[in-house]
Amino acid sequence: MTSRRTLLLAAGATLAAPAAAQSWTPSGPIRVIVPFAAGGTTDILARLYAQRLTEALGVPVLVENRGGGGGSIGAELVARANPDGQVLLFHNSTFSATTAVLEYAGRALHSIERDFAPISLGATVPAVMMVNAAVPATNLAEFIAWARAQPSPPFYGSTGPGSAGHLTTEVLKADGNFQVEHVPFRGTSLLVQEMLSGRIPFGADQLSSAMPHIRSGALRAIAIRAPSRSRLLPDVATVREQGFPGAELLGWNGYFAPARTPEPVLARLQREIAAAARSPDLAARVDELGADPGGNSSAEFRDMVHAQVASLRPVVRALRLQPE
């Protein structure tokens, strides 16, 4: 027979579990590394979350942009940081792509599975493939026909070798049997500047930061790189609908800590990120960006990211894709 004392102890243990998760408090300002130049969607989302986390954690949460290497430079900084919760990474789905590409090339400085502790999803954000308005194409088939007709392969831009834009365009190039030449940038804001100038006729960006240029007519959306169409551009078909399922890649942004970060630290951070994602003001702002707020558990986020990396590894091997 269960005694009253046993029941009280069990109840106490249940109550103590959340309290233990709350026991960690930051010792000073938290640095959030965004591994791209300022101005892109990942940067915008990181700063939205930073405002909420500053209030919740009681210390400044400061966003730092460390672009380059398709996000690898900023990620490496976090991989080598002390696992104490004071330095975090806010990355996007390019992390999955660069992991697969750099591993294949034998040039990986860190492992997404070994060197990082996923904390929580910030948002899922569809990416859009676009052309400069001077390119006479409204879909992928028309762009491919235009590219084939050029006297030399036109340029396309991405956020760096091995990035999501690099990998998916190389898949598109192989499946569509046409040629384009890669030009890497340190962030999508820099890529978009060159697309607006016309020097780079084709590229991709997360939909939220691309929409002002699409609405102005300076850039034209020709495909959504996500599993489903965007509510902001309901008439633009996905890559799968246009016959190129290999170029599909779920876009996400999320938080990572260095591996070996203590569980109470991860639990507190995950809880505050999830609370921020549920807050009406942040959710409304994320919705305006054409994105969906995250806030899932660390295990759910880990499984999602690791599954995406696993799905990209055979693609990279088949393409023999190198980080240039």
Rank of each mutant, 00 (worst) to 15 (best):
H182V: 01
T94N: 14
F95I: 00
L190M: 09
V87Y: 04
W146A: 10
A141E: 14
A108H: 00
L191G: 04
Q193N: 12
F143I: 03
S72N: 11
V192I: 14
L77C: 09
V78S: 11
S120T: 11
G85P: 04
M130N: 07
E113Q: 13
L121T: 11
S158T: 15
N177W: 04
A174L: 08
A174G: 02
R148P: 05
T188E: 12
G176I: 00
S189G: 07
L172N: 04
W146Y: 14
S93K: 01
G203M: 06
A164Y: 00
A133M: 09
D84S: 06
F202I: 13
A147T: 02
A204D: 15
A97Q: 05
N139M: 05
V87D: 11
A204N: 14
F178R: 06
P118H: 03
G160E: 05
P136N: 11
D84L: 05
I73P: 02
V131S: 10
V131W: 07
L88E: 08
L140F: 02
P154V: 08
E170W: 07
Q150Y: 06
A105W: 03
A141C: 02
P161F: 14
L89Y: 05
W146E: 09
E103M: 04
V171S: 05
T168P: 03
E142Q: 14
P201D: 06
F90I: 05
G203F: 06
H110I: 08
L190H: 04
N132G: 12
G85T: 01
A174H: 12
F116G: 06
S197D: 12
A75T: 11
I200P: 08
L167S: 10
T169N: 13
R80H: 12
G74F: 09
P154F: 02
A164Q: 12
R107Y: 00
A100R: 02
P151H: 01
A174N: 08
L89K: 08
L196T: 09
V183A: 01
F185I: 00
N82W: 00
T99K: 07
S197V: 04
H166G: 00
S163G: 12
Q193S: 12
G203P: 10
V125F: 07
T169R: 11
E181S: 13
D205I: 08
F155K: 15
S158M: 03
A149I: 00
P136G: 08
E103V: 03
G85V: 02
S120C: 09
Q86V: 02
A133D: 13
G122K: 09
T94V: 10
S96M: 12
Y156S: 11
L167T: 12
S96N: 13
V183G: 00
A108D: 07
A147Y: 01
F90G: 08
P153S: 08
V183H: 02
G85H: 09
R80G: 05
A127R: 13
A145L: 04
F143R: 02
